[in-house]
Write a protein that binds this DNA or RNA. Structure first.
Length: 309
DNA sequence: GCGACAG
DNA sequence: ATCTTGTCGC
């Protein structure tokens, strides 16, 4: 059972955001998008804001990061540094905008890694133990996270094993890079040597680079995985059978009628048909398939217990 | 300006 | 994902 690791497994994006922000000199500013771009992907702009919002006021240069229209979260702090701020907006933004970031564009590297690893995805059914199914989910409490893995007997629905693992997460949620946030925690909770299917709370091949978190977990841990997400990231659902198309190609399928559909896509070593049959069979009540529902409850309950301790 | 953005 | 009160519905 391969448990391959790569250098990108434990990227501390939170620290990289802060070091990028620290590069902005006194008297200058940049936008949330500028930081994101410096880190390699403008789609991380919201994550930059999230990081700054949670660590504000620790001697950083967070006040030097503004919105793209010049609005400043902390206008007074910028005025002190000699900037012209009118109505909460930085005047002549482009003249005082910092461009010389030297931080590593780590998201570009991760993107390249996804493009390489996607070649290892196996989209066909293989030698799989269909007697068991595991659902994996994670709950968060600030930088702390708890991963839960619930293994059920496929036929009876009997719970065979429950695993809970705590850890620290230093990679904010960025659309398209969920695996880099969750993989370190999943590694802790998923036991090795299991050849049965693992249901993952997120997409597999239904991803901009065809390598969502379900694929990443499957390839990294060498286990069969299925992506089972609650909402879409990319693609369009076809009127008829619920096939989800991207670039004229079937990349996933909407399963479970009603208001709470599950968007299924191949993770690793399972065909889309088999994945959909499995998920359909495991949806007992409306909503997520049973193992995922139970993993979610377990993780959420575990978090609640810690937050009250 | 509007829509989109897994968890 | 998390923040959060009462409330509408089967």
């Amino acid at each position: 059972m391969s448990r391959s690791r790569s250098i990108s497994d434990d990227v501390d994006l939170t620290s990289l955001v802060l070091s990028a922000v620290a590069e902005v000199p006194r008297g200058m500013v940049c936008t949330f998008g500028d930081i994101a771009e410096a880190l390699g992907d403008p789609r991380a702009a919201r994550a930059v804001g999230e990081v700054l919002a949670t660590v504000q006021g620790q001697g950083l240069n967070g006040h030097r990061v503004v919105y793209s229209d010049g609005r400043a979260p902390d206008a007074e702090a910028l005025r002190v540094e000699g900037l012209h701020v009118v109505d909460g907006r930085v005047e002549g933004l482009d003249e005082v905008r910092f461009h010389g970031f030297e931080v590593r564009p780590v998201l570009r590297d991760l993107q390249r890694e996804q493009e390489e690893l996607r070649l290892q995805v196996v989209e066909k059914d293989g030698m799989t133990d269909h007697k068991k199914v595991t659902g994996v989910d994670i709950a968060y409490l600030g930088e702390e996270a708890v991963a839960a893995a619930v293994t059920m007997e496929a036929g009876s629905g009997k719970v065979l094993e429950e695993v809970v693992e705590w850890g620290r997460v230093r990679f904010p949620y960025v659309p398209g890079y969920l695996a880099y946030r969750e993989l370190p925690m999943v590694r802790k909770a998923v036991r090795c040597g299991s050849g049965h299917v693992h249901l993952i709370d997120g997409h597999g091949r239904l991803h901009p680079r065809c390598f969502g978190v379900a694929c990443h977990i499957g390839v990294s841990l060498g286990i069969p995985t299925v992506g089972a997400a609650k909402s879409m990231l990319i693609g369009h659902v076809m009127e008829g059978g619920g096939d989800i198309m991207v670039d004229g190609e079937v990349r996933g399928r909407m399963v479970g009628s009603g208001g709470k559909p599950t968007y299924v896509s191949v993770g690793h070593r399972v065909s889309l048909d088999t994945a959909c049959h499995l998920v359909k069979r495991l949806i007992l009540r409306a909503g997520p398939p049973e193992p995922l529902r139970m993993a979610h409850i377990l993780a959420t309950e575990e978090r609640r217990r810690r937050s009250r301790a």
